[in-house]
Computed example of a mutant assay.
Amino acid sequence: MKLAILSRNSKLYSTRRLVEAARERGHSVRVLDPLRCYLRIASDGFAMHYKGKPIAGYGAVVPRIGASVTRYGCAVLRQFELMGSYTPNSAAAIARARDKLRCHQVLAAEGIGLPTTVFGDNPDDTADLLAMLGPPPHVIKLNEGTQGAGVMLTEKLSASRAAIETLRGLYAHFLVQEFIAEAKGADLRCFVVGEKVVAAMRRQAPKGDFRSNLHRGGTARPVRPTRAEAETAVRAARILGLRVAGVDMLRSRRGPLVLEVNSSPGLEGIETATGIDVAGAVIDHVVAMATSRKRAANAVLTDS
């Protein structure tokens, strides 16, 4: 099958592993920088060029769209969808997952466990906003932060107010959440492909920090999620419309709590920690779904 991987850097571990997995399975694969794709949109059809030449005919597209290029990257991915390419994560699903506030609202409405979260805009409401959340410690997160950036822990009410005032002065969008002390600085990353968790790892924050992101010095080890954790991860990804996702959860006294659903989860940390060929699982799923979709479309044409 002719595959495309949307990525700004072909040398990144995740991109390289997807290319390797596709070629090992006999597929044609090309890495395309989404910012070098440009589009023609008209009622008589859609077209796309890449570095001066037309591109078309891709059976499937695997998006690796960074947060900094979400809007343009999603426009390119949407064009591929309109031109008939299959993608495990649609442009609409990626945009939905990238907005932490929207993501939390959608998941909470479906009964997914989450840390209690508050959101407000007016400075006059800060005291009541924090009262709705409860006593500190509080976790304050930028709405579109990634890899632990833009996340802070405040242990006093005065510190929470000061952090909120600072972020509002910068016109930043942020959420405030309860701190789950029993997690002890650890979280669970479940890598979902299709309808199952293909790999999972427990990430532990370094001493003196509460953020377990590997980019922040956290450590990881393989783990077998409980049935409740695996079911929660798969449900969260499905609700957001993602077929490939990294679902981050905390283990709490009231069960698994979803922190974030990542639509472009990194492969290096989880493959290194678990030894599982996650890239291969992604490619196998994408090809199987694209093939099934093509057969269904051909059957409809034959019947008509």
Rank of each mutant, 00 (worst) to 15 (best):
F191K: 06
A131K: 05
G73D: 09
K51S: 10
P135G: 03
V192S: 06
G113R: 04
T219N: 06
A245D: 06
V76K: 07
P135Q: 05
H49D: 13
A131M: 03
E260S: 03
V139T: 03
A290F: 05
L259A: 02
D248W: 02
R251P: 07
P115S: 04
K11P: 08
L157M: 13
A95W: 09
V300S: 03
V278E: 07
A162T: 12
V300H: 00
R98C: 06
M152S: 14
A299I: 10
L259V: 09
V278I: 14
P88Q: 00
F80H: 04
Y38K: 00
R189G: 14
E231N: 13
D125K: 01
L3R: 04
L188M: 10
G111I: 14
A159M: 09
Y86N: 09
A22L: 12
L259E: 02
H27R: 06
Q79M: 11
L167P: 07
S158K: 15
L130C: 06
L153Q: 01
T87F: 01
R25E: 14
A159P: 05
V223H: 01
H49F: 05
A233F: 09
L167G: 04
R221W: 11
L188R: 06
I239C: 11
G57S: 15
A127R: 03
R295H: 00
S264H: 05
D187L: 04
I41N: 01
L175F: 01
R295P: 08
H138S: 06
S263I: 00
I5D: 12
